[in-house]
């Protein structure tokens, strides 16, 4: 094996078997399933997904242009009425805020996990995994327990004499923003950890030995090398925020309507399915466009890191 191939193998050990396979003389037809068997094996899952997932989503999107007749009126309404445009912009704005907040809160934790002794790192990782595993509904309820009018935070503030009357902490944009970054924080931390762990600690030490301050070493060495993790984490948190339903529905009020809550309101309260379909299309298009645009960027970033 050539030296050049070694780093790629270290990252993707399965390449080893993939590359070694053609060298062994075993006839391919014997260790690969036949085409018919393969198709038989995937077809039940594909049929189920086709019927229970792709067909309904396609039908919903189709209704947005075909009802009552062929029309783009539902999309025009989305742009013409300032209320809806405002909701789309608010969703983008809240998602950006959630992403920034999660990055600021998550980066130090990721750095801690990547650099701490094994025992400490395992403990901190567990503190990140427990919220990740706990249902979003339960965690949103946790925020309600803390912040409701006679909730825990208000009763503490009263007991300590900071306030006389309970504060209205729920149903504001700030609350939604903070609670969403809490819910999505693990999705930021985990990609950051894996990218920080890939950076050799020797690089940082070299910077220190060459006389850089720890801060300068961080800014010029660690931070740029962790950019792929930052991109991956931000992409994940931003895209998940765009379509987030439960937390804004429970903790937000009418003034914090986001795209997902608007879709549900149009569908279940207004029974305006074509319009709900149009908003769904916008949400889907935004999520997919951002995912693929940034995946491309990520690919470029990785290629640059290898060069």
């Amino acid at each position: 094996m050539t030296d050049a191939a070694a780093p790629a193998l270290r990252r993707r050990p399965w390449l080893r078997t993939a590359r070694a396979a053609p060298a062994t003389a075993a006839p391919v037809s014997r260790d690969r399933l036949s085409r018919r068997a393969s198709l038989l094996l995937v077809s039940p899952a594909l049929l189920l997904l086709g019927w229970a997932f792709f067909l309904p989503v396609a039908a919903l999107l189709f209704r947005s242009v075909s009802e009552p007749t062929w029309t783009l009126a539902h999309y025009a309404r989305l742009i013409d009425e300032p209320l809806y445009l405002r909701i789309i912009l608010r969703t983008l704005w809240i998602s950006a805020g959630v992403t920034v907040l999660a990055l600021v809160l998550g980066y130090p934790i990721a750095l801690w996990i990547a650099r701490a002794r094994a025992g400490v790192a395992a403990f901190v990782t567990l503190c990140v995994l427990i919220p990740l595993w706990t249902s979003v509904l339960v965690r949103s309820y946790g925020w309600i327990l803390l912040l409701q009018r006679n909730g825990i935070v208000n009763s503490w503030l009263k007991e300590w004499g900071f306030i006389d009357r309970s504060l209205a902490l729920l149903y504001s944009e700030t609350t939604v923003l903070v609670a969403m970054s809490h819910v999505l924080l693990p999705f930021m931390i985990l990609p950051l950890v894996s990218s920080l762990k890939n950076i050799s600690p020797d690089l940082g030490k070299a910077a220190l030995n060459l006389g850089a301050s720890p801060w300068r070493g961080f800014v010029h060495v660690t931070l740029p090398l962790s950019l792929p993790g930052i991109f991956a984490g931000c992409l994940m948190v931003f895209v998940l925020s765009l379509g987030f339903y439960i937390t804004p529905a429970l903790l937000g009020g009418p003034r914090t309507l986001m795209i997902a809550t608007l879709i549900s309101q149009q569908a279940t309260e207004m029974l305006n399915w074509p319009f709900a379909g149009a908003i769904s299309f916008v949400l889907l298009a935004l999520s997919l466009a951002i995912t693929f645009a940034f995946r491309k960027l990520l690919g470029v970033e990785r290629a640059a890191a290898h060069a």
Binding site: V57, A59, G243, S264, A267, A276, S280, L283, S287
Partner: peptide
Amino acid sequence: LVPHVVVAIAVYLQ
């Protein structure tokens, strides 16, 4: 990749 709220109302309709 698809937000669950979109799946939810689509499936409800179906």
